[in-house]
Simulated assay, not measured.
Amino acid sequence: MSSAQSGLESTRNMSVTRSNIWYEDGSIILQARGTQFRVYWGVLAQQSSFFRDMQSLPQPPDQPSVDGCPVIELHDDVADVEYLLKALFVSTFIAQAALPLPAIGALVRLGRKYDFRNLLDSAVARLAFENPTTIEKLDALVINGKPFPHVPTRIVRHKALFLDIITLARENDIPFVLPCAYYRVLWHYTPLFDGVPRGDGTRAFLAPVDLRRCILARDELLKARFHKGYSYGWLKEWEYDSDCAHPARCIEARNALLHCYIDFSRLWILEKYGQDQNLLCPACYDHAAESTLAGRKKLWEDLPKFFDLPPWSELKNDY
């Protein structure tokens, strides 16, 4: 039996449901697991080399059809196909400021599979916007002077969003999203072993490879923040004492801050220094702020290695 005959038999034997995406004057019917979508072949061909090449091929005489429209069977998730077609045929859908992550995942998967390059690019751009590769872009996301906690604006937020972003990025080979996404998970969630509730009755879990990276990186980052040259290395090795107006008070304040950060287990490593200026004299405060700024830049540059990933320069944007 030919593949076309096989497709015809499966179409005949399957209970078929008509989707809400159904244009009466459409010229092609896409069928995914018993759900049919009637759309325009010309639009598909314009946006996708896969459908453009298919359109140029002669249709076999036993090609399944409905009302004269060829039926093309897709072996994809129904929800993914619906999101893809909404992005193509419903102008207000793709124009939304924030899209749900399942829609972005659908555009990544099917955009790559069927070469809808524009849709793939737009989906990856949303992931990259929320999980930047430079500290300048990270700082551009700051709300009320703080980069963390992060409130996404181009992806609809749910309670376990950053875990799901990691899974999507890793499964679809978009590695440059991972360092920032891993760090967001460490900042937002603890513990991770039992997963994180999404808020809809389901829980998100990290795959073992991701869980291992996060757990090992958290311990290393907690120690590294006090290493020389990193965000709070100046608390352990103070290399500035000229112009200090109150040496005894500043030493006491630095010791208090060091113990405060050690006792507080949250990853305060990428925040700008913003402690009460009354804790240190003006000269020491300026030195602390400058050292923290330089340290956070260095830590950001080194962030991928903490998660056992190549450096930023090798995490190519070549999805």
Rank of each mutant, 00 (worst) to 15 (best):
R154A: 11
P311Y: 10
T190N: 14
Q55P: 09
W268I: 07
F205W: 04
I28S: 00
R170P: 01
L99M: 06
W41C: 05
K316R: 15
L221K: 09
S56K: 09
L88R: 00
P179A: 10
L8M: 12
L178K: 10
S65H: 12
G42C: 07
A283Q: 05
R18V: 14
T11D: 13
Y182S: 03
M1R: 04
V124H: 06
R198D: 10
T190I: 11
F193S: 14
F148L: 08
L141G: 09
P61F: 02
V196K: 04
V78I: 12
Y273P: 04
Q275I: 09
E24W: 10
A79H: 14
P208K: 02
Y319E: 15
S231M: 01
Y285Q: 02
D263G: 15
C281H: 00
H246D: 10
I143D: 15
L280A: 03
A4E: 13
L85F: 14
S48W: 02
W41A: 08
L168C: 05
R112K: 12
Y182I: 04
W268Q: 09
V156N: 05
S48P: 06
K146Y: 09
L222T: 09
V43S: 05
N172L: 11
P191W: 01
P102D: 05
S6F: 02
H287W: 06
R249L: 02
F129D: 15
W22L: 06
L84C: 11
F50K: 05
L99K: 00
E171Y: 01
R117M: 12
G229D: 00
H227D: 14
F307S: 04
N144R: 14
Y183T: 02
M1S: 14
I269A: 02
G34H: 04
L279W: 14
Y261H: 11
T11K: 07
E73V: 01
I269E: 03
S265Q: 14
L8R: 06
A217H: 02
I29Q: 03
I94R: 06
V71W: 08
P132C: 08
E171P: 00
Y182R: 05
V66S: 07
D286R: 03
M14D: 12
N118Y: 13
N255P: 03
W312H: 13
L141C: 06
P70F: 14
S65D: 15
G201Q: 04
Y261F: 15
E271I: 09
I28Y: 00
R52C: 03
A103V: 10
C260S: 08
D80C: 08
Q63E: 13
S242D: 13
D173G: 13
L315C: 07
L235R: 04
N20E: 15
A204C: 04
V39I: 04
I72G: 09
K272P: 09
W300D: 02
L84F: 04
D53T: 11
Y230V: 01
R254I: 03
P197N: 11
P311N: 07
